[in-house]
């Protein structure tokens, strides 16, 4: 490495405690926002993993970009409503095109996803650059997210009561919606994820569940997009569920572990960002990935260390 850059000394208090005590003005809402994003993505991600649809999140999150740009051009402003609608429509269009390509051409799902997301993303980038004068859409923010800006937003006030910044309120309601859907539709989601045949015979509308799940996915991804960007959403969707599968095989417990993972990765991620002075959203994902690797190595169910130990025991 170079003498210009050395690893900053790690100060446990400054990284792990201070953001939540002394600098709560800055990091308080960032933490809440990060947790809402990670928890909503993680809870939904459990079902994507079960259904082997993990990469649909990738496709939807990339196709959000042209939706945002077009909504911006049409509505002529950064109004939340039109942007949200544009992104949601784009996400749904992407899933529809993928389904169409899969069923009406000899191509398989992987190729269909690869083609659709890259095309839509490319269209979004070209539009954003071509109309750069009219759009202040920073390409870096498309990939990095702008989690820190949440703290700069003025909080919404109802009467004398000061609530949260609008982005936090939106994300928190999405999280509440995800939880509500899982609580209300748990049985249908569970059965149709594990065995569509049994679900159909039990009277569950399997295609309806799938469509609802894609709708919810689009909603979550669109709301998370401004905070964490196009690519990192995928990590948010997969990492908590993947970590949970290494620790338990029961779906209810997977939900709990996903939420814990979300909270822990926000805490450690903010610490990492403070320590190294790097971008927040990628740092949260790096922390989440580290937690995953820890579970992979030391997980009680088939962790690598356990596997190694059992192999040695069998051999001796």
């Amino acid at each position: 490495m170079t003498p210009e850059w050395v690893l900053p000394a790690f100060d446990a208090h400054a990284a792990l405690v201070a953001p939540w005590t002394e600098h709560r003005d800055t990091f308080g809402w960032v933490g809440v926002m990060g947790f809402c994003v990670a928890a909503a993505c993680g809870l939904l991600g459990n079902y994507l993993l079960l259904r082997r649809m993990a990469l649909m999140g990738d496709a939807v999150s990339h196709s959000v970009l042209p939706g945002l740009v077009i909504a911006f051009l049409v509505s002529g402003g950064r109004g939340t409503g039109p942007m949200f609608a544009g992104a949601l429509v784009a996400g749904l269009v992407a899933t529809l095109i993928i389904d169409l390509l899969q069923s009406r051409t000899p191509l398989k799902q992987d190729a269909a996803i690869g083609i659709v997301f890259s095309t839509l993303f490319a269209i979004g980038v070209v539009l954003a650059v071509a109309f750069a004068g009219q759009i202040d859409l920073d390409p870096d923010c498309v990939l990095n997210g702008e989690l820190l800006f949440v703290a700069l937003e003025p909080s919404v006030a109802v009467g004398s009561l000061t609530l949260a910044p609008p982005a936090v309120i939106r994300m928190a309601s999405v999280l509440a919606l995800v939880i509500a859907v899982i609580v209300v539709g748990y049985r249908a989601l569970l059965v149709s994820s594990f065995d569509p045949g049994i679900a159909r015979s039990a009277g569950v509308h399997v295609r309806g569940v799938r469509l609802g799940l894609m709708l919810l996915l689009s909603l979550v991804v669109v709301s998370a997009f401004e905070a964490v960007g196009a690519v990192l959403v995928v990590a948010m969707l997969i990492l908590p569920g993947a970590t949970a599968t290494l620790i338990t095989e029961r779906l209810p417990r997977m939900h709990g572990i996903a939420v814990v993972h979300a909270g822990a990765s926000v805490w450690l991620g903010v610490g990492l960002a403070v320590w190294l002075d790097c971008s927040l959203a990628p740092a949260i994902v790096v922390a989440g990935a580290a937690l995953f690797v820890a579970a992979w190595l030391m997980g009680p169910r088939g962790g690598l260390l356990i596997q190694l130990w059992e192999r040695n025991r069998v051999q001796s």
Binding site: L55, V231, L232, A235, I238, L246, P282, A283, G302
Partner: peptide
């Protein structure tokens, strides 16, 4: 027990996050 799609997405986004950092 992770399937290939999950493993791909996980590696993709995690490495990307390290790169962005």
């Amino acid at each position: 027990r992770l399937k290939e799609d999950a493993a791909l997405g996980l590696v993709l986004a995690s490495f990307f996050a390290v790169g962005l950092c």
